[in-house]
Design a protein around this nucleic acid. Structure first.
Lengths: 226, 226
DNA sequence: TAAAATACTTAACATTGTTCAATGAACTTT
DNA sequence: AAAGTTCATTGAACAATGTTAAGTATTTTA
């Protein structure tokens, strides 16, 4: 009677096998190198076998990044020790950037590639509890919204910057801009894009300073330009 | 003897024919819809015929965007009337954003897609003079550098913001961030990304304000939040 | 008029994602 | 224990992609 559970366990094992092989290729060689046949070869299966575990190549990749993006939440999670909401916003931006630069392929796929409408993530029920609720990017957006809301609620921003959605998107765009620019153009010879972290921190800090009602000098205090 | 010239002219005519058909598909349906066979069908040629005019699909697309991106330079060109360097920088950023949002597919291909190393643009000599010198993105970068250099030279920025390359990349990242975020996530249901222009102007203005030694209130004066 | 160059076509090849009938092993039922 | 069922996996194909090599007219040159 317990055999049905064992079957499910085995099923998840090969599912993870697929995912691990795919992740390996993805991280080492990027999105283009990740083909169904290469994944199948790596685990000594047939390409068609993958379709018993994932509807699509797209959904395979979503499952891949989805599990890895728990790390983004973790990276942005230990902000509770920071009481000042502006500083929380600042540091969360920096954490976001650090994460993106650490996992450029993931970031490209998750935040720089358009997905079809139907690509909502619905993991198989067996492992549903392992996965954070909702899309990671959606969650990140909601999380950022809370931070921004706090800053506005405490009257830290100039009156031009009191639309929560607008400010949230602006903050996100700041972090995203530096990161994505580096990911696509970091190796172009004509712009010496030496230090993306520096650029990102500079952008986040200057933008935040520009929104503040009264400057707090926290950007330089935290030594982001080191 | 003049026939050689006529041949060259005819050759360029079909080259333009290809480019026009490709542009049509590209603008209307985006990058994925642009296949060699569809272009060939549109002009009632065979797919292979295109390879007599372009080395590659990639180079066909580069030729396409390259000619269209003269418009970006034009859009950023009439800034000479603005004497204040900070205001020039601000307005050029806005112009950049407007252009990108007007040609999202072009922008995606030019600034959000990584190209292989060898993809330097070398147009056929016949029409070389028609084309602006250098890569358009490279040119835009150089142009932006000049604007930033002016601001720094006139002592308008805080001491943290005096590295020309760094500040240039930061400014570029600000404009790019808002634009690219909207292009990939503008239609995602979970973030109500209603007005990308507003977000972009907000980001550019706040970031610029944050860098300024003394605020000039020009952002709101120009009515960017309307 | 013969030779050469040019523009294009025909027909294929390799690589991609994807599907579907068949297989065979493990499990359930009788 | 035998028969039936489920299910993970395979084998073989299909369609669409970019690309290429050989062939075919047509036009230009000698």
């Amino acid at each position: 009677m317990g055999s049905i559970e064992r079957r499910a366990r085995e099923r998840n094992q090969t599912r993870d096998l697929i995912l691990t092989a795919a992740r390996d290729i993805f991280i080492k060689e990027g999105c283009d190198a990740l083909t169904m046949r290469r994944v199948a070869d790596a685990i000594e299966y047939t390409p068609a076998a993958i379709y018993a575990h994932f509807k699509d190549k797209l959904h395979m990749m979503i499952a891949l990044c989805d599990s890895d993006f728990g790390l983004l939440r973790d990276a942005m999670g230990d902000l509770d020790s920071i009481t000042d909401p502006v500083q929380r916003l600042r540091v969360s931006g920096h954490a976001y950037v650090d994460f993106a630069l650490l996992h450029p392929h993931h970031y490209r796929f998750m935040f720089m590639t358009p997905w079809p409408e139907e690509a909502s993530i619905e993991p198989p029920p067996e492992i549903k509890k392992e996965i954070k609720k909702g899309n990671p990017d959606q969650d990140a957006y909601a999380f950022l919204t809370l931070l921004v809301r706090d800053c506005i609620a405490q009257g830290r921003f100039k009156p031009e910057y009191t639309d929560v959605d607008l400010v949230t998107q602006t903050c996100w765009a700041a972090a995203h801009g530096a990161v994505s620019l580096y990911i696509t153009h970091g190796n172009d010879p004509w712009c010496n894009f030496t230090n993306p972290t520096k650029v990102a921190r500079m952008l986040i800090n200057s933008q935040l300073d520009g929104m503040l009602l009264q400057p707090d000098n926290a950007g330089s205090a935290y030594g982001e330009f080191a």
